[in-house]
Design a protein around this nucleic acid. Structure first.
Length: 310
RNA sequence: GGGGGAUUUCCCGAGCGGUCAAAGGGGGCAGACUGUAAAUCUGUUGUCAACGACUUCGGAGGUUCGAAUCCUCCAUCCCCCA
């Protein structure tokens, strides 16, 4: 196990699907263990996107420091690798201050990136992707997959021909490094057990979770979510593709573009959020590090579960 | 009061005598996922002792070797003329 991974595993984590109550529980947990919070959220990194990302307010934080929110402008793209790098820097900073680190958030890919590490690969290459797209003009998507099968049969076998994004990335990595992406990805498969780390996942019965989501979306609308999105569209800078795919924002953006009625947009936000929550849960199930705790009454058994040093 | 149209599996919606447990979409459920991830992709979805059987297409009858598809009556909804 390398140094990065050891460092990541020395931190505490609180995750769970959207609307599971992570912020509230996270803040109280942070206070109990003397931690600063690092947000584990792919959208809260954006400034000016507050209501829709359910960013914690100063009031909710009650003085607990939080990091990696409001660090990029909505016009900028952002990626997994950037997050992981920034997070590791933050961990060092906080540890040097003699505090513990508690990650709080619901982006499972980022969670896995912390827990299992990521591979040092080349960033996305827009030119390459553009060229590939031009080349594919008029050809069936299976052709890409066939191309991949020739250079990296292992990845091709794992990827569905329709999974164009991943097929393209695999092709891209090969083009840029001369090595198949499958040769980089081997290390992430095995994780430590939940007893060996502090990764907590808030859990709710599905029905209750869905009801909480509905309620929360209504609350966001009441708090002025639409105005927040309007303000975003009034800026000079275009909203980046990463930022505009945030739940709620994309539906409201479509509404403002006249693509649907307001009520439809709100219903869609609820629906898409429910689907997302379900996908998050699939992730948690796949990570051996996760320890479940009931969202309604999380218990952290601090007395006989001493946190690791550092 | 008269004329016309509709009723399909959780929802929307195809089907118009056999190849129909019934296209497609939505939803549900499950899975994948490492530089777009709150994204993207995949599988599954009547029941069962399940390569076969059984029950479904508003209800009840009928025609036919055979019906979700044709006929009759009933129910509900919609439209048009009064």
């Amino acid at each position: 196990m390398n140094r990065e991974r050891r460092r990541a595993l020395s931190c505490w984590y609180l995750s769970g699907p959207t609307a599971s109550g992570k912020t509230k529980v996270g803040v109280s947990l942070a206070k109990r263990i003397g931690a600063e919070i690092i947000s584990l959220d792919s959208m809260a990194i954006y400034r000016d996107m507050d209501i829709g990302t359910a960013k914690p307010t100063d009031d909710e934080l009650g003085g607990v420091p939080i990091h990696l929110i409001n660090i990029v402008d909505p016009s900028e793209e952002y990626s997994l690798a950037q997050y992981i790098k920034a997070a590791h820097e933050k961990i060092d900073e906080i540890h040097n201050r003699g505090k513990r680190v508690l990650f709080v958030g619901g982006t499972p890919l980022y969670l896995k990136g912390m827990l299992r590490g990521i591979f040092e690969g080349p960033p996305a290459d827009k030119d390459f992707r553009q060229k590939l797209q031009d080349k594919m003009e008029g050809h069936p998507p299976e052709l890409l997959h066939e191309m991949l099968a020739k250079i990296d049969p292992e990845s091709a076998k794992k990827l569905h021909p329709n999974d164009i994004r991943r097929v393209v990335r695999a092709l891209e990595v090969y083009e840029l490094t001369g090595k198949p992406i499958s040769s980089f990805q081997k290390q992430f498969d095995s994780g430590v057990t939940s007893e060996e780390c502090h990764v907590y996942v808030l859990q709710w019965p599905r029905e209750e979770l869905y009801a909480r989501i509905e309620k929360r979306v209504d609350k966001m609308m009441y708090e002025g979510f639409l105005d927040e999105v309007k303000r975003l569209t009034e800026r000079k800078l275009e909203i980046s593709t990463t930022a505009r795919q945030a739940l709620g924002y994309r539906e409201l953006l479509d509404y403002l573009d006249g693509k649907m009625k307001f009520g439809q947009a709100v219903d869609l936000i609820k629906q898409n959020t429910r689907n997302f929550a379900k996908r998050q849960e699939t992730w948690f199930r796949s990570l051996s590090e996760c320890r479940y705790t009931p969202g309604a009454a999380p218990m952290f058994a601090l007395e006989h579960d001493e946190p690791p040093d550092g």
